[in-house]
Design a protein around this nucleic acid. Structure first.
Lengths: 214, 214
DNA sequence: TAGATTGTTAATCGATTAACAATC
DNA sequence: TAGATTGTTAATCGATTAACAATC
């Protein structure tokens, strides 16, 4: 691939939009739209066409002046940039209500994410099978994560144990954590943590109910 | 309350941080820290102290120069700004795996959010009781939402039905939607939608696994 | 009072948008 | 060729950070 090694310098917001572009392109592809302009894509997402072109420009030149982009081609390019063109092996840590729901979340599997292991410390949960994944004792977590070549860990444990588990994940080579615990994790810089904080989303939404701020 | 009616003009990022401040203050309060400076709070959250002061300044003057903030007092103020000082009535629409997990998510209840109704169209789910909430037929949704004075709807339905359900919610007066479906919802401007897009989070995380962009 | 920390204004930084030459 | 749309540079906008007078 001839794109420049921008290494750093790609805004986080651009990456989020890249995933949105990929999804929109997939749907347009299904609808038989072989061709798409930055304007059409932008309209669909409620953003500015220049934004679309600028975002893509971080990674190369994918369009044809005067024509636009070939839908399927751009879709493939984006998947390859995001790394979702191949299967990505994921482990769940914490098989409570939320964790178990994530194990069978179809939005993950359709995007190429595959849970290959799940862990908990609760004897009542260990041994249960959800979506073909057996919940295992967290005692052997490091070993199994290494053996099964997991690259992303999904953390859905109580706040108190989140940091401790994160430390163990880092030690066995995990560099990407999707964290559902309401805790900021302290990890080495090479490890990327994405936070999904459900209560935070709810609280900030609640703010907008106050008519004084409208 | 003497704070100015800033109506608009409060950045969305500020609101998110407000909820983070409230949480940190709660924990500090529990730890017996009666006093806190913008610097201490900022350090805990990994941000800039001026940011903290600026965020708070949108809503009034809560501190004491040369001293800082009274932990408990600031915590209460923030809760009242966010609206989480009182119970907030929530309805779930879509009682699949994810929806049911949300019904019993303790992070919501500890913050004062209370599910008062849950709806689905699947006969196998209707009648089940989760966390004391009975799953009801979506047919009578509008009526029940109005009667039980629901103010926030949590949407956890498949992508195809999300817009249709959103339309029905808007019609019965809902102005805040927490949307877990991977769909942009078209709603009138007075309705606030927060998106929690699990696949999107996973995809953008996956990007950072590519060593070429590090 | 001396020291500390606020609230706020000004400077900086980064991200979004507009504009347009290049080009299919 | 004329028309359309890209890639990219310059202008704008908004958010973060620094600096400091006010004040407890």
């Amino acid at each position: 691939m001839a794109e420049k090694n921008k290494t750093k310098g790609v805004p986080k917001a651009t990456i989020k939009r890249l995933a949105l572009y990929a999804r929109a392109l997939y749907r347009m592809e299904m609808d038989g739209e072989t061709r798409v302009s930055s304007m059409a894509l932008a309209e669909r997402l409620g953003i500015n066409p220049a934004q679309v072109r600028k975002d893509l420009a971080y990674f190369g030149q994918f369009g044809v002046p005067g024509y636009g982009y070939r839908t399927s081609e751009l879709h493939q390019k984006l998947k390859s940039i995001l790394g979702t063109n191949r299967e990505i092996r994921v482990a769940l840590v914490g098989a409570g209500n939320l964790g178990r729901a994530l194990l069978s979340y179809v939005g993950f599997s359709t995007q190429g994410f595959r849970f290959v292991a799940a862990f908990d410390t609760d004897q009542n949960k260990i041994g249960r099978v959800i979506n073909n994944i057996e919940i295992l004792s967290a005692a052997r977590m490091e070993e199994i994560i290494r053996e099964s070549r997991v690259v992303i860990a999904v953390l859905a444990v109580p706040a108190q144990t989140a940091q401790e588990i994160a430390n163990r994940l880092v030690k066995c080579g995990i560099t990407a954590i999707l964290n559902f615990s309401p805790m900021r994790l302290l990890v080495p810089p090479k490890v990327k943590v994405h936070y999904v904080d459900l209560a935070l989303e709810m609280e900030s939404l609640s703010f907008y109910l106050n008519p004084a701020y409208f």
